[in-house]
Write a protein that binds this DNA or RNA. Structure first.
Lengths: 221, 221
DNA sequence: GTCCGTTAGGTGACAATGTCACTGACGGTT
DNA sequence: AACCGTCAGTGACATTGTCACCTAACGGAC
């Protein structure tokens, strides 16, 4: 296997001096995981730092009753601060990360992380920024869940998941888990959207008929 | 005015060498604010780091419609990472911090913060830990709002606010803002508690009659 | 192909929570 | 006493969540 220079992929490492990057490439471990794998979770608390080289990870939280809500997604080039957070806080948490695609993960041992964040401003700022983004993400989730209407949230999420395409491949249950609600609720709202000729539905697939109309609902908050 | 050695108050600074602490005492600014003052908010984005020397700050988020939810509280000895987060992410946010008591705040200019977090492991870990706690706090808020029953959440919050005392001084609107719901909802639940002889109510005051009963509700999730 | 189990989705009744409009109750000021 | 602002109570209704149960679609196994 060829050696992967992952340091070019991350804002916090790309700008580092060559010797530092070479050292990193030696001390970090690169792992691949399959779509659907659990990257981290309550029973799988890592003692190292995660960086996502390639793919996408969905971070969600599950209630005692088994209902689920998606908190945010980690994209390639981003680091996963939640695992570090839980390491540091040493608190129970019930969030988990699922690989939404095949993923390539860089695992940096804590000593290397400590050394890097003390010696390299660029790296430290990168980590702080990652924390910040997640905090902001969660503020948004709180706002949506506490104050948002479900039709608005669903319209937003459909557009986000559809990203440029004219259809979304997801079951009603999938969408319910995105928003932290029940399948029946999603079914009702989607049927309403359908009656208003905004979408078409078939098993596991939603097709946009009037994206502007969906957008209007999404922005009517 | 006597010079306040605030560095002894924070985990991240108390263990530092004396010379570093003296330098910090010179570069930081100590400010006092009155109960009720806005320490930070959407229109008041600081370019420095906040440390809370004394008092308590309530951090809450307000919806477009004007409904409010309390996210967490900052206690003495803690740092306020949300302001830094927003600085770094440079994103709009609608959280604000209100002084719940008279407070003493230490403001550390960014250059001093950068230098400190690069040079001192203890300080850097302190900041990371502060971020982590807030992330965990927000996970809890999301869980509560998305999946929690309102009577359970209210019971929990009453006990938290009553902390050891036999009464809670708060209006129904105050409690609604704690939980991100409407006053009417709180009124209904409190009347139910009253009918079950768990509390007594008078204008702006709730008195526990059966704290164990309230506790039972709080833990029935 | 048929059979069959699994999964996706539909439906109606009901419960919990949020919204709205309005009312009265209380405390302080004049 | 009269006035005023804040606090709380109430009923009607809308939205969202829960539950029980159903049907339809799909994908093997045979």
């Amino acid at each position: 296997m060829t050696i992967l220079d992952w340091t070019e992929r991350f804002k916090g490492t790309a700008a580092l001096p060559m010797d530092v990057r070479e050292r990193l490439n030696k001390s970090a471990r690169v792992t691949h995981m399959k779509k659907g794998d659990q990257v981290f979770g309550p029973t799988n608390i890592p003692d190292s730092l995660f960086f996502l080289y390639d793919g996408r990870i969905r971070v969600s939280q599950t209630s005692d009753a088994g209902r689920e809500i998606v908190l945010y997604r980690i994209e390639a080039g981003d680091s996963c601060v939640l695992t570090t957070a839980c390491m540091l806080a040493e608190e129970a948490y019930n969030a988990e990360g699922i690989a939404e695609t095949d993923v390539t993960v860089v695992i940096l041992p804590k000593p290397a992380f400590d050394r890097l964040s003390s010696e390299e401003d660029a790296f430290r700022n990168f980590v702080f920024a990652a924390y910040s983004r997640r905090l902001i993400d969660l503020l948004r989730v709180v706002d949506d869940v506490a104050f948002g209407r479900i039709d608005v949230r669903l319209a937003e999420r459909l557009l986000a998941l559809g990203d440029g395409l004219k259809e979304v491949r997801a079951t009603h249950q999938n969408l319910a888990s995105e928003l932290g609600t029940a399948r029946e609720v999603i079914s009702r709202v989607l049927n309403d959207f359908q009656k208003r000729d905004l979408i078409e539905q078939s098993r596991g697939l939603i097709t946009f008929k009037d994206k502007a109309g969906i957008g209007a609902i999404a922005h009517s908050a």
